[in-house]
Design a binder for these strands. Structure first.
Length: 510
RNA sequence: GAGCCGGUAGCUCAGCUGGCAGAGCAACGGACUUUUAAUCCGUAGGUCGUGGGUUCGAGACCCACCCGGCUCACCA
């Protein structure tokens, strides 16, 4: 059915015309509100408690405004609920209070309209605090019906039950405005996310980290293994990449003399989309001069504990039915030891061919042509990661996997690196940052060879970054934390799309 | 990329072995001055994802395609 012929849309337009014909503006400029709905309810509760109500049981006169959620007409009276940023409140309209003309014009209102009302508060026979409307003003006419479900409160559990709600996930993501408008709990999820990010900033600010902004448009991308988005600057006539990580610019700032820096910002990776990956996502990275990865591990423990407690009031939460405890210290699990234990032999002693055949057997994939590091990582991902439900630092990764990490001071085959896993998912990645420009160049060149062999995710050589290293970077610990994944934990969201307001979707037709 | 499931009214869904496209909510008209999933009476509303095919007849069966969800793979 075309939009033009939809009777549902046509009827609302006709009501708009009818309002205009009566001289009622459909789109107001402002409303002089005296209370949010929750404030109005608190005012009445106080008055009732201090016996300050009139003999008719009325409290203060309030002016409240909100979107009409429900309407129950009774001939010469009507009940409605409106909702604002503070919650909901019931309105009561009466013919003999409003007069014929004003009462009749209520017929031109719809669910979804924004109205403001003035009148005293009272408590209905059923006990609900309500505004006895003496005057109402249309603030904005809704010309398209919102997909409200019908709600009831379960007598036994006291829980809100929604009937025939808005549940098509694709439409909810596409029309997030409608999803938010009809689902208070979705608004609450995003409030949690905001509190989480505020908490991250507070923790770092209190420890003298400086918040900085580095380029999103970069002539060369790096700092992670991923395919980038490519764009073009017209005036410079040059290719630019959207960053895949903040890392290399933040470490340039450590070279410049800032001892502690952090950035919370979007990164972009031109890869698949699934429950834990969105092409643009929010990353926190922070770097601290004179620290190694061990010190950063302790800082990450404190940080995670702090923000979980900020959001939930305690350092524990339940994620998808699984209780998770963020009280330090988190378990430390060496990468190679974990693999050796699972496989019952020393993976580093295996020949390339043996490693390949074991990896293919374990993962069930054809892995011909993958390098040693990737093979180890695949096996680790298949055997160990899914079991890491409670917060666990996986430490000391093979050097092939970590081109930007310092070699392990006790075993040159490893690097001083950790990843934090929670609920079987990678949440953070960190290392003692490689500050030896000669070693760094050799690592880049090794990556370039992988690239020449067709590995599109290997790290490109960044000569400017090497120049910065040559000037001298102090020993530095660096951490990256996937903010969306942390938000998934605190909001108990199964999909990253549930913590991103406007997730990336295929464009709509037409 | 593979497998499974799905796309029918504004929303949520039903539609059997192929036989006049349905329900609830929302909407519209009417009754109702303390209701709250308000209630009661009545009305209207459809490119059944798209395109082919089979058939006297397709929402249903067959083929292709589009879109989505889930699982797996990919994403160190």
């Amino acid at each position: 059915m075309s939009e033009e012929s939809s009777q549902i849309l046509r009827i609302r337009r006709e009501k708009l015309e009818a309002l205009e014909a009566r001289g009622i503006p459909a789109f107001a400029y402002r409303f002089d509100r005296s209370h949010r709905t929750d404030e109005a309810i608190a005012v009445f509760d106080d008055e009732e408690a201090s016996e300050a109500l009139t003999e008719k049981g009325e409290g203060a006169e309030v002016r409240v405004a909100g979107r009409i959620l429900s309407w129950r007409g009774h001939g010469k009276s009507a009940f409605a609920h409106i909702e604002d940023g503070g919650g909901r409140i019931q309105l009561y309209f009466r013919l003999n209070v409003l007069g014929e003309e004003d009462f009749a014009a209520l017929d031109l209102l719809d669910l979804g309209d924004w109205i403001g009302v003035r009148g005293p508060l009272f408590r209905t026979r059923t006990g609900e605090i309500t505004v006895r409307v003496e005057e109402w003003t249309l603030l904005s006419k809704s010309l398209r019906p919102l997909p409200f479900g019908k709600e009831e409160v379960d007598e036994e559990t006291g829980e809100r039950v929604v009937h025939s709600g808005f549940s098509d996930q694709q439409t909810r993501y596409r029309q997030r405005y409608a999803d938010l408008a009809v689902h208070p709990e979705i608004r609450e999820s995003f409030r949690l996310r905001s509190r989480l990010i505020t908490g991250l900033r507070r923790f770092l600010d209190e420890r003298d980290f400086l918040e900085v902004e580095t380029p999103i448009l970069q002539p060369l991308y790096g700092g992670a293994a991923a395919r980038p988005f490519v764009t073009h600057h017209n005036a410079l006539d040059t290719r630019l990449y959207l960053r895949i990580a903040d890392e290399l610019y933040l470490k340039r700032l450590i070279v410049g003399g800032f001892e502690r820096v952090y950035e919370i910002a979007k990164d972009f990776r031109n890869e698949g989309i699934d429950r834990s990956h969105n092409p643009e996502f929010t990353m926190l990275e922070f770097y601290q001069a004179f620290a190694d990865y061990r010190e950063m591990m302790e800082l990450v423990e404190d940080l995670i504990r702090f923000v979980v407690e900020e959001v939930h009031g305690e350092p524990r939460l339940t994620y998808q039915g699984k209780p998770i405890d963020f009280e330090p210290s988190f378990r430390r699990l060496p990468f190679v030891e974990a693999l050796n234990e699972k496989l019952g032999e020393d993976v580093q002693a295996l020949s390339d061919a043996d490693l390949l055949s074991r990896a293919e057997r374990i993962t069930g994939d054809s892995l011909e042509g993958e390098n040693r590091g990737r093979l180890l990582d695949k096996v680790f991902g298949a055997l160990v990661e899914p079991e890491l439900i409670q917060p666990t630092f996986v430490i000391d990764y093979p050097v092939e996997l970590s081109p930007l990490a310092k070699p392990h001071r006790e075993d040159p085959r490893l690097t001083e690196r950790f990843e934090l896993f929670v609920a079987g998912r990678e949440l953070a990645n960190a290392f003692s940052e490689l500050n030896d420009p000669i070693d760094q160049r050799a690592r880049f060149e090794a990556q370039a060879r992988l690239r020449a062999m067709g590995d599109e995710e290997s790290h490109p050589v960044d000569d400017d970054y090497l120049r910065a290293m040559e000037y001298g970077m102090p020993p530095t610990g660096g951490v990256g934390i996937g903010v969306d994944r942390l938000a998934m934990l605190v909001a108990d969201a199964a999909s990253i799309r549930d913590v991103i307001l406007f997730p990336t979707l295929r464009p709509e037709e037409g």
